[in-house]
């Protein structure tokens, strides 16, 4: 009564991976540099592709890792649904292996929260299932979350079951010059995105038409900008690098911005790393960010400059190394690539 056996495509993929020699999977190469290039001599494979089963009434979709994210979204859109995977090219497996969230993560949800089940090929060449097919499940350890963002260093993703969500009735973008983006964020109940580039603020509002209109009015009332808010087709073009900050750190960015309340004094300062050893979370001087688009309430900053390295504490590094060793004792999965490389950035 265990989960249905992997089908032929997954079994063939496992056979291709085999049990020896360095191996990695390539998808759309849209995030290929993330974590570093695989070492020379690494055999490159492609994961099986195809949407296996979309169950709109369950709000789930079973999809193979090699499927294009665009193809998945097109399939879901036909029944008025979508997933948290960012729509920017590439494959489902690649998006899960990298684990980056959509720029509108507040509305679409986090990628790792959308993964209900994973099937991956292990370092010894067998198909492993983690998680379960239902929208709620706490049976056993959470291997799906461990695999998301692991860059194919613990197992090679072959298939996943993802949670889907209804596409809201209305999605509208608005922009204004000179608005305080935090006032916009605080005034709104559940914006899908509030983005700010140092002078312009963009907001995406989604939901029932009347609610979106009410939220728009709340936005106008809370920010009181001279030129007002205008509707636009989309948000801003995003610079290529991602910095991961605390949402509160963005206030310091705002204070340090030209014309901002604290422009003369600059900003920067310590991050949140507390008494326990985690990643050094201090990002340093906001002035180092260059051209930027900041996601208010989230903390992601899209920048023209790479983020500085954030090495883990020794205790966390040791734990991560034990995880890697347990799942890939011979180091054959994506050798040369690491989830803790010199920095946490990837060219977009």
């Amino acid at each position: 009564m265990t989960a249905p056996a992997p089908d032929g495509a997954l079994v063939r993929f496992a056979r291709e991976v085999g049990a020896t020699g360095p191996v990695a999977v390539e998808g759309g190469r849209t995030r290929w540099d993330t974590g570093g290039d695989p070492a020379a001599g690494t055999r490159l494979l492609r994961a099986p592709a195809g949407i296996v089963e979309h169950r709109p009434e369950e709000m789930t979709v079973r999809v193979r890792a090699g499927t294009a994210v665009d193809e998945l979204h097109d399939e879901l859109a036909a029944t008025g649904q979508r997933t948290a995977l960012p729509r920017r090219g590439g494959t489902v497996g690649g998006a899960l292996a990298v684990g980056e969230n959509d720029v509108c993560v507040l509305g679409r949800g986090r990628v790792r929260d959308a993964v209900l089940q994973v099937r991956y090929v292990s370092a010894d060449g067998v198909v492993v299932t983690g998680g379960g097919p239902t929208v709620k499940n706490v049976t056993g350890y959470d291997l799906p979350r461990l695999l998301v963002g692991s860059l194919g260093t613990l197992g090679l993703l072959a298939e996943a079951i993802l949670r889907t969500n209804p596409v809201p009735a209305v999605s509208r973008w608005f922009r204004a010059e000179g608005a305080v983006p935090f006032k916009a964020f605080d005034a709104l109940f559940r914006p899908s995105a509030v983005l700010w580039n140092g002078c312009t603020t963009w907001v995406e509002l989604e939901g029932h038409a009347a609610d979106v209109e009410a939220e728009r009015r709340a936005l106008v009332a809370a920010t009181a900008v001279a030129g007002g808010w205008s509707e636009c087709d989309a948000g801003p073009v995003l610079p290529p690098y991602r910095w991961s900050l605390r949402p509160s750190e963005l206030r310091r960015l705002h204070e340090a911005a030209p014309g901002g309340p604290g422009a003369a004094g600059g900003a920067g300062g310590p991050g949140e790393a507390g008494e326990a050893g985690g990643h050094g979370a201090s990002i340093g001087e906001p002035s180092g960010l260059g051209e930027l688009v900041a996601s208010i309430g989230v903390g992601t900053v899209f920048s023209s400059r790479p983020a500085p390295p954030r090495p883990p504490s020794p205790a966390l590094a040791a734990l991560a190394a034990r995880v890697k060793h347990e799942f890939d004792p011979g180091g054959r999965l994506n050798p040369g690539r690491s989830v803790d490389p010199a920095g946490s950035v990837s060219p977009r």
Binding site: L245, P247, E272, A281, G299, L316
Partner: peptide, 11 residues
């Protein structure tokens, strides 16, 4: 971490 996308495995 409290930041948007903490690096490393999602331990």
């Amino acid at each position: 971490g409290l930041d948007a996308e903490p690096p490393g495995y999602d331990l």
